[in-house]
Design a protein around this nucleic acid. Structure first.
Lengths: 140, 140
DNA sequence: GCATAAATGCGATTTATTTGCAATTAGTAT
DNA sequence: ATACTAATTGCAAATAAATCGCATTTATGC
């Protein structure tokens, strides 16, 4: 209840209407620890009886990404995933066995930006860094 | 001439037939410093009068990736790119202005694998690391 | 409640990629 | 060289992610 209310406000602050589909998408992404792809969002909406056309879902995630509410990430897959953007910058540990995606909050790269600029004269705006391997649970 | 010959041998070693399309794909990827997507490969083939259906090109890059000859990489795009796999492991500096892709051979991550394993108990098999920013030329 | 701009649904479209199957071809044994 | 055979390709159809135009609906400010 209070979550829904917060999302409404968040949307209205951005001059966006708080439609059922948008609220549901935000609710899902807010409460999930890993980035979600559009077809999973669509499945979630169906399960929760929220009527929304795929095109609408794509429009929602695009809009919210553009507004900075969501962040679009891409692993080695044929589709984008989206995560709630208020989380700090972070990277992912992606288990190749069970598919679980874990966050890694301390980024080892930032300290290297200057060094790379010195060597290559390349000014780094952003970077992507994802790890693929075997998570704790899958090691037994 | 000798390049073509080498490619033939390389293919035959893998029990693959050295067809014109395969040779041309290898020739292109061998000589390009940045990862190439399939539609660029197709354009290259057309330009060089090598007849090959798109489906065939997809089959070729998939097969060669599976055999370890090519490496499939994905930036923040809706398509895969492929690079000749014998190059050492490396990362990329992708200019957001001109699109140029530069290699970065020294990977700052390897030294961090152990540390991450200690903290997260996650065994890292591979990782992707790409930088997006402005290249030297585009800074003026 | 009403007006209206913003959102949505629907259907068509685009682009990357895959697949089944019949026709072709590279490599090999003759 | 020739013929054989499994590997490869072309073609056309299919799939899947994502986008778009447009008519219809809806959330919000009054």
């Amino acid at each position: 209840m209070q979550i829904l209310h917060d999302c409404s406000k968040e949307l209205n602050k951005l001059n966006l209407k708080a439609t059922p589909a948008r609220l549901a998408v935000l609710r899902l992404l807010e409460n999930s620890r890993e980035p979600i792809d559009v077809s999973s969002i669509i499945r979630f909406l169906k399960k929760n009886k929220v009527k929304a056309d795929p095109a609408t879902v794509f429009r929602i995630v695009n809009l919210l990404t553009q507004k900075g509410v969501l962040k679009q990430v891409r692993f080695n897959e044929d589709k984008f995933r989206y995560e709630y953007g208020l989380k700090n910058e972070h990277h992912h540990l992606i288990c190749q066995s069970c598919g679980e995606i874990e966050d890694m909050s301390d980024c080892p790269i930032d300290s290297l930006k200057k060094e790379i600029h010195k060597k290559k004269k390349f000014i780094i705006k952003t970077h992507s860094l994802e790890f693929f391997g075997i998570c704790k649970n899958c090691q037994s």
